Simulated scan of single mutants.
Amino acid sequence: MKRIILLVLVATTAYYADAQKYFTKNGSISFFSKTALEDIKADNNQVMAVINTQSGELQFSLLTKGFHFKKALMEEHFNADYMESDKFPKATFKGNITDLSKVDFTKDGTYPVTVSGDLTIHGVTKKQTASSSVTVKNGQITGTSKFMVTVADYNISIPKVYQDNIAKTVEVTVACNFDQKM
């Protein structure tokens, strides 16, 4: 009987020790707006992100004031007029890798996956699904994705005077090196 209890304890401990969470404090999220009049690009390299390699859970969090533009005036308008960053300071994503079985976190390689979850921007939460990839190299995990976000879906108003300068749908790019274990 003692052997069975010991085996159960060892198996349970091994199971939970295998549950791995990795995180980063300096992931990268950028967006790109292309119109006939102007291209706008902004980068935020202060993204906090966590991945659970056992469950496939993902979480991202960033301060909207962390986006930086080529032109200071664009950054000012983005924060004050469009994103209302004082009122809605954070953007978040909470979701999962829906096809986690495609990824072998113990073997180097690049694995195409689908990520699905709740994206919250400007106080509005919407379901978002995107094609992504997970790369494992020498024990390091990198996640990347590119997807489109429709500005109006998140109640972001663009003044008429600037409607031709800003695309109705912007391309979002995510790149995170999960370099620290929790």
Rank of each mutant, 00 (worst) to 15 (best):
G95E: 01
M74C: 13
A130Q: 11
H122C: 05
E75W: 03
M74F: 11
I121K: 00
S131A: 11
M1N: 08
L37C: 06
T144E: 15
K25A: 13
E76W: 01
E38Q: 09
E75M: 03
F105K: 00
P159E: 03
T135S: 11
Q54F: 10
S132K: 01
L62I: 15
K34V: 15
P112V: 08
T129F: 00
A152Q: 14
T173Q: 13
T24M: 11
D118H: 08
G109H: 11
D179N: 13
I141G: 14
T120K: 05
L62C: 05
V47S: 04
I51D: 05
A36R: 09
D164M: 03
T35V: 06
S55T: 15
A175I: 10
Q180D: 14
P112M: 06
S157N: 13
D179Q: 09
T125L: 06
N96Q: 14
S33T: 10
D81E: 05
A167I: 05
Q128Y: 02
D118N: 13
D39L: 14
V113E: 03
Y22D: 00
T110A: 12
M83P: 02
K127A: 07
K137D: 12
A167L: 13
D104V: 06
Q180C: 10
V161H: 03
A17P: 04
E171S: 07
T173H: 03
F78K: 04
K160S: 12
N155H: 01
I158A: 09
D43Q: 07
D164G: 06
K137P: 12
K65I: 02
D104K: 11
D18R: 15
G66I: 08
T106H: 10
M148R: 08
N26M: 07
T150E: 06
Q128L: 07
D86E: 15
Y16P: 01
K25R: 09
V115A: 11
V47I: 15
E75A: 09
I158R: 00
K146C: 01
T173A: 09
S133P: 05
D153C: 02
L37N: 13
N79I: 00
K126Y: 00
K181Q: 13
